[in-house]
Design a protein around this nucleic acid. Structure first.
Lengths: 119, 119
DNA sequence: CGGAATCCTCGAGGATACTG
DNA sequence: CAGTATCCTCGAGGATTCCG
């Protein structure tokens, strides 16, 4: 058998390896409980480049956080939804959102209103 | 007045800027509700280099997540504790830990037992 | 003991152009 | 529409040495 490849000392370390980085948590958050197309996610994250979004989605898929469903036809149509693991993250991201609002109000964009996760 | 420098579209983005990266969440987690010396944290994180630990602690202090208390004397003695913001993160990290254990049991080190946060 | 100073690696993230 | 293909930047993280 190959190595278990468990370089983590602590579950928190593993978790941040899966959802850390600049975009992954945001993508999970924006998919929420719904189904999102590539271009919908792109619109919500205007600053991400297509290449990076594509790569992040691939990583999330490989790590079992999202599902990619491709509908054949012209034009192409791809839908992303969260897996059970991804859905399990939503309450945590929700709390994280509350935490940031509570402790760093000056870093919250003006006029930001929190929508229930998975709107 | 200088720019507000609020480059975040969403509180989750801000939060991950503060606690993202390879070490910050782990450091918060290991300080917990107690007071930890530099060398205690270093022992819990054997793979971090002194320089990096120092820099991460500085960032956490600058972002208002931890407090640094220096006791003068020889030998030097520095204690780190969490601020209110840092403490507010503990329940979230606790849930994150549970989440990883639930969904990625194969990435959890054998024999890992979760201690109540802030042990 | 708890760092600081210096230098370096490496890969996440990005810009741009192109395509089935 | 939903990506690939190339090439590039830049800074987090690291190794090593030195210090009050």
């Amino acid at each position: 058998m190959a190595q278990q490849s468990c370089p983590y000392q602590c579950p928190v370390e593993a978790a941040f390896d899966f959802i850390g980085g600049k975009w992954k948590a945001l993508i999970i958050w924006h998919i929420g409980k719904s189904s999102r197309r590539y271009s919908e996610i792109k619109q919500k994250l205007p600053k991400i480049s297509p290449h990076i979004l594509s790569r992040q989605l691939k990583m999330l898929e490989d790590n079992g956080l999202i599902l990619r469903k491709q509908h054949e036809g012209i034009p192409p149509r791809v839908e992303y939804t969260l897996t059970a693991a991804g859905l399990g993250l939503l309450p945590i991201l929700d709390l994280t959102c509350d935490w940031a609002i509570a402790h760093y109000p000056e870093h919250i964009p003006k006029g930001f209103f929190k929508q229930p996760p998975g709107s």
